[in-house]
């Protein structure tokens, strides 16, 4: 296939899959593990939370995830300040022994849009401390450029609000980001269905990160497979080079030799 040597490279590390998936909101750990498996994803996000001290009976997420097989990408979900996000990343590195972090600093509970000022502040600190920072940010090329300039390993603009399933709301902004930014551009958040993922890839994005679109589907296992295929299809379509859009028809069958 045309994608044989088409690796996604983040901070020097190579990945075959361009689909990254979250581990939240599944009905069970078994279902999550199956969805991860069929999605083909190699990078999966996790959250950092307090251990439940009073009830130790609950199973642990990592009983269902082989850390040798997957690259864990701990997030800073729920952090509203740079300080909280940095603290969470430091804890994540200690818990997981990896420098990869999905940095998000939220500005508002209703939209879950990023607070880009705090995000940049946190990213600067984390890059200095040797983290491989993948920041969730707005679909704003100026912000993405600032994040790239300070040393982020990728930029992850949102397609639409987290968990909204609204798809890629501003493909033109994503295109501008793609033309400007040299590090991988990964659409993070907003994907609702396989076609949304394919659109992101057809635009030329390096990858797509999603959670709710799979975990919240009526059949998460089937949706995980659909997403895997959509990412591959979208990537192939991008590489193949689409035809230009035209307003009027252009016949596919020859006009010569028509019966009189």
């Amino acid at each position: 296939m045309a994608l044989e040597n088409d690796k996604l490279i983040i901070a020097g590390r190579e990945f075959n899959s361009r689909l990254m998936v979250g581990t939240g909101k599944y009905a069970s750990f078994q279902q999550m593990a199956q969805a991860l498996e069929i999605s083909g994803a190699e990078i999966i996000t996790v959250a950092v939370r307090r251990v439940n001290i009073s009830d130790r009976s609950k199973e642990s997420l990592l009983d269902y995830i082989d850390p040798k097989r997957y690259t864990l990408l701990p997030n800073t979900a729920g952090c509203y300040t740079a300080d909280d996000a940095v603290r969470t990343c430091r804890l994540a590195r200690e818990a997981g022994l990896s420098d990869f972090v999905k940095l998000e600093v939220l500005g508002d509970e209703k939209t879950l849009f990023p607070d880009n000022e705090e995000l940049l502040k946190a990213a600067k600190i984390l890059v200095k401390e040797g983290f491989t920072v993948l920041p969730y940010t707005s679909d704003d090329v100026i912000m993405c450029r600032k994040l790239e300039d300070i040393g982020c390993a990728a930029v992850m603009p949102l397609g639409a609000p987290i968990g909204s399933g609204l798809g890629i709301r501003n493909p033109y902004n994503i295109r501008i980001i793609l033309e400007t930014i040299k590090v991988p551009v990964i659409v993070d958040a907003g994907v609702g269905s396989a076609s949304d993922a394919a659109i992101a890839m057809e635009l030329g994005c390096d990858g797509v990160l999603m959670n709710t679109a799979i975990a919240g589907a009526q059949d998460p296992i089937a949706m995980a497979e659909a997403m895997k295929l959509a990412i591959i299809a979208g990537r192939l379509s991008y590489k193949a080079g689409r035809i230009p859009r035209k307003l009027y028809a252009n016949a596919s069958s020859p006009v010569e030799g028509l019966l009189a």
Binding site: L61, L91, M210
Partner: peptide, 10 residues
């Protein structure tokens, strides 16, 4: 003292 671990998340 804080003791944290990984849980499911996006």
């Amino acid at each position: 003292i804080e003791v944290v671990h990984f849980v499911g998340g996006g």
